[in-house]
């Protein structure tokens, strides 16, 4: 009687211990296999990853994050990962932090630098550490868009101050680019509308709206072209300001109405496309316009944030369902 009591107590406690230990490890994604190795990557910032999150290669889980530490110098975040021993990484491997889904879980994707050359990777201190880059999340992008529109406004003002014939030519090519992008944008929107015609009427409505906007923009650009020919720069400038204003309004809408993400995504797409083209125009000016900026780093900064915006946009284009899902909440 007593002996079996002891045995039962032992069995029950042991069962609970095993359950808790292995259950926790399993849910964390820890495998007890010894054939794992550690890889460290350096980041400027790491988004929302935490220990235990997945590490993936080509979309397949190959390990997990073990530790996240700020380097003693304070300029880098070093993330230690444990991955399967037998998997070899690309020679020019980089680590990219990104959301795994929109529900708050993040991951590290290991990829070849060739595939994502556009990112600005952190420079690791140790040679065997992977350079890392963290994709910003959607709220950061909204803030960035706002900042960019403010920047463009500043830029436009400065353009007004120092307008010359040379810069006028640059603006002409910039406007050409804007037209191109607008066309691309409407194509894209009609594609999307086709793909999700069953899903939403809203998108079609918005596509029409954007179409209007594009037409309006083209008209105003044509006017700019004409006025430029007549060297009436002041008119061109006011058109420029108009574009900027609409950009700002869209940005405000993005912040104000998060429930309508579908519309937001489309509007954001067009807005970003416009910004893109303006920036492209900037580049085409070979720094002529860039020199107008008091702070030369501003252009670089804008370029970086623009890249981030483009990434989000391409992601929306590739995985629209991921973003559509948000509207459900």
């Amino acid at each position: 009687m007593k002996r079996s009591n002891e045995a039962m107590v032992g069995v029950v406690i042991l069962a609970a211990l095993i359950l808790v230990t292995f259950g926790t490890l399993w849910l964390q994604g820890v495998t007890l296999r010894a054939d794992e190795r550690e890889v460290t990557a350096a980041f400027n910032r790491v988004g929302l990853i935490k220990a235990g999150n997945a590490v993936k290669l080509r979309g397949v889980r190959i390990g997990r994050i073990r530790e996240i530490q700020v380097a003693p110098q304070g300029d880098l975040v070093e993330v230690t990962m444990r991955i399967q021993e037998d998997i070899s990484l690309p020679d020019d491997a980089v680590a990219i932090v990104s959301p795994e889904s929109l529900f708050g879980d993040w991951q590290i994707e290991i990829a070849s630098r060739d595939h994502f050359p556009e990112h600005r990777y952190a420079n690791p201190r140790e040679p065997d550490h992977l350079p890392g880059y963290s994709i910003p999340d959607i709220s950061q992008l909204t803030a960035t868009a706002d900042r960019i529109s403010a920047d463009i406004e500043v830029l436009t003002e400065r353009v007004g101050i120092a307008f010359s014939e040379e810069t006028a030519r640059n603006i002409a090519s910039l406007i050409e680019n804007v037209e191109n992008v607008t066309q691309r944008l409407s194509d894209l929107i009609s594609q999307q509308a086709d793909a999700f015609s069953g899903v939403t009427e809203e998108i079609q409505v918005i596509a029409e709206e954007v179409g209007y906007a594009a037409t309006g923009a083209r008209q105003s650009f044509e006017r700019i072209n004409q006025t430029l020919a007549r060297e009436e720069f002041s008119q061109a400038l006011s058109d420029m300001t108009e574009v900027t204003a609409s950009l700002r309004q869209i940005t405000r809408e993005m912040e104000g109405t998060p429930e309508d993400i579908r519309g937001m995504a489309v509007k954001a797409d067009s807005t970003f496309a416009r910004i893109n083209s303006i920036m492209a125009g900037l580049e085409a000016g070979e720094g002529t316009l860039g020199r107008l900026l008091e702070d030369p780093t501003m252009a670089q900064e804008m370029e970086g944030t623009l890249q981030e915006l483009q990434l989000l946009l391409s992601d929306i284009r590739e995985n629209p369902r991921r973003y559509l899902r948000l509207s459900i909440f």
Partner: peptide
């Protein structure tokens, strides 16, 4: 004190 967590762990499982 010892057994409540044990039973709870099994129950959660």
């Amino acid at each position: 004190i010892i057994m409540f967590p044990v039973v709870t762990a099994l129950a959660i499982g």
